[in-house]
Every structure is written in structure tokens, then in C-alpha cells.
């Protein structure tokens, strides 16, 4: 997959993807999120670290995510999980994105008029 358009498309939906993954997995750390996306999309979609961490930090500042640090192999690992507000917001944003994708799909599948 061409990376440039992929990155552009990802930009608007990255926070929703993070919220969806955390809805499913309860808590995850940064590297784990990048790997999960890679695994789910069979390597077709790759989240760069330069995009992931600012998105995580912004969601945390917005109060949608909370963090917990756990010591793993002698170093601190920061786990992100959804707050109560985050759960509500995740459901709403996912529904919005689904509706948008359905509409986008309708437009993209438009048959040329003869």
C-alpha cells in the first residue's frame, strides 16, 4: 500500500482506532497498539510512532484515556486505558465514523449515469 495517501487517510481516524482498540483490550501500551493494528490489517496499515504518541497524549489530556505505569524488565511501561467518559466518547465516535464510511462507500460505489 502506498504510504503517503495511507497516512493522510489515517490522520483523521487514528484517535477512533485507538479508542476502539482500547474498548476491546482494556489496556495497551504504545508499541502494542502499533503491532495490533499491523496484525489486524495484515501489515497493510502501519501507524507511525510520530503520529501515535501525540494522539495518545491528546486523548489523555482530553480526559478520554487514563494511564498506569507498570515496571516491566526493570523499566517503566505506560499503559493506556479508557476512562468512563472515554467509553461513552468511543461509542459515539465509532458510530460517527461508521456512518461516515457508509456514506463514503455509497458515493464511491456510484455507478456512472448513462
Amino acid at each position: 500500500m502506498n504510504n503517503a495517501p495511507n497516512a493522510q487517510l489515517l490522520k483523521g481516524s487514528l484517535s477512533v482506532m485507538i479508542l476502539r482498540l482500547l474498548e476491546d483490550r482494556e489496556r495497551m501500551y504504545g508499541y502494542e497498539i502499533t503491532q495490533k493494528v499491523k496484525e489486524l490489517t495484515a501489515g497493510e496499515m502501519a501507524i507511525t510512532e510520530g503520529a501515535l504518541y501525540p494522539a495518545l497524549h491528546k486523548l489523555e489530556a482530553d480526559g478520554l484515556l487514563t494511564t498506569e505505569t507498570q515496571v516491566v524488565d526493570g523499566r517503566a511501561r505506560k499503559y493506556y486505558s479508557l476512562t468512563k467518559v472515554g467509553h461513552t466518547e468511543a461509542a459515539s465516535r465509532i458510530a460517527d465514523l461508521r456512518a461516515f464510511l457508509e456514506n463514503l462507500n455509497t458515493v464511491l460505489n456510484l455507478k456512472p449515469s448513462l
Binding site: 501500551y29 504504545g30 508499541y31 510512532e49 504518541y53 505505569t69 516491566v72 524488565d73 523499566r75 517503566a76 511501561r77 505506560k78
Partner: peptide, 11 residues
């Protein structure tokens, strides 16, 4: 730095 150290190390 602590968060990135963990990311670098694991990756």
C-alpha cells in the same frame, strides 16, 4: 523519555 525508552527497547 521513560515512555520512549520502553518503546525503543521493545521495538
Amino acid at each position: 523519555i521513560a515512555e520512549l525508552t520502553d518503546h525503543y527497547t521493545t521495538a
